[in-house]
Design a protein around this nucleic acid. Sequence first.
DNA 1: ACCGTCATGTAATCGGTTACATGATTCT
DNA 2: AGAATCATGTAACCGATTACATGACGGT
Lengths: 183, 183
Amino acid sequence: MSTVNLTPTSHVVLGLIARKGPSTSYELKAAVANSIGNFWPFPHAQLYTEPARLAAAGYLNEEREEGGRHRRTYSITDSGRQALAEWIAAPTPTGYEVRDPGLLKLFFGDLAQAPSDLEALAAAQLEAHATRLEEYRELDRLLEGMGVHDHARTTLSFGLVYEEGAVRFWQQVQREHRERGSR
Amino acid sequence: MSTVNLTPTSHVVLGLIARKGPSTSYELKAAVANSIGNFWPFPHAQLYTEPARLAAAGYLNEEREEGGRHRRTYSITDSGRQALAEWIAAPTPTGYEVRDPGLLKLFFGDLAQAPSDLEALAAAQLEAHATRLEEYRELDRLLEGMGVHDHARTTLSFGLVYEEGAVRFWQQVQREHRERGSR
DNA sequence: ACCGTCATGTAATCGGTTACATGATTCT
DNA sequence: AGAATCATGTAACCGATTACATGACGGT
């Protein structure tokens, strides 16, 4: 039972298992996919290896299914529950990262050889964000209809804020680009 | 001259050197720090190792200073310039990641044992984002005063959009939390 | 001469990513 | 029975992060 340091991935795994009870990696994967994974992706391989790490460190118990798929089901231990509680109560780092390839490319827009490159970038980004925004809205309406008012939905509403901002931003980029082009 | 695959870090290094001319890692570090590094951090160690990788792949030339600090100055090669141009012209992946520890914790807010944990989270996040917003505004005013209208400033304006959104979001979280608490 | 900071790296580790691969289940 | 998809992993590589460490330079 070695000691490991807890990464965001660890907290996601611990948190989901604490919330939903004993889970398989596949269930974790599904839970992540349509919630936090929307803007903070955790590749499925991580959700298979991470519980193993946490089990080795005593934060989870692993139980192997006998027949069939030989699934591994993980449940949280007292030690795991405590680690989770400590994380939640601890001060949260205020940093954050927005890793957006579109934004990165825009940053180097002055190096583009054809102005059309920028146009294409803005158009594609705008469309993608608009689509995503619509998806989020739909999902939010759905949750509202179901009477859901939990923290997951609150988190989703951040997604809405973000996408609205992104749409406005890329529209603005388009606008300025056109003005500059026609001048 | 092995072949490597180009990561975002690679593009940042290539782009900055293409834009500013021959540079040392320290200069890259400085350039990143007050621009794109604000929301997409590239640790300084990367900016020392990555140019070496790129040089080995033929995208950069490395020149070692004789005396003094024995600095390594990297300049872009034709091959590097071409790789960069291809990247800029290529379609951009539309995905993005927002890795925000505060948001992650909020997502697990239902697991908090004391409601004060959430209050503290919201208060701290709000303050941090408000501060950052003010910094961005100041920087933007400064650039405007200098007559700067480049892509770096456009990118900064995305930061403004983001921080404004974040501030509104965390205010909203606070508000809902208070209403729920007093009910 | 000394001290603090600026500057420049290296080494080691480890998590994350990609790719591969196979086993169950379900549907036709 | 076969195909397609769902489900469950493993392995290898490698970039990213952390920690460590030293060297130059500027000021007192």
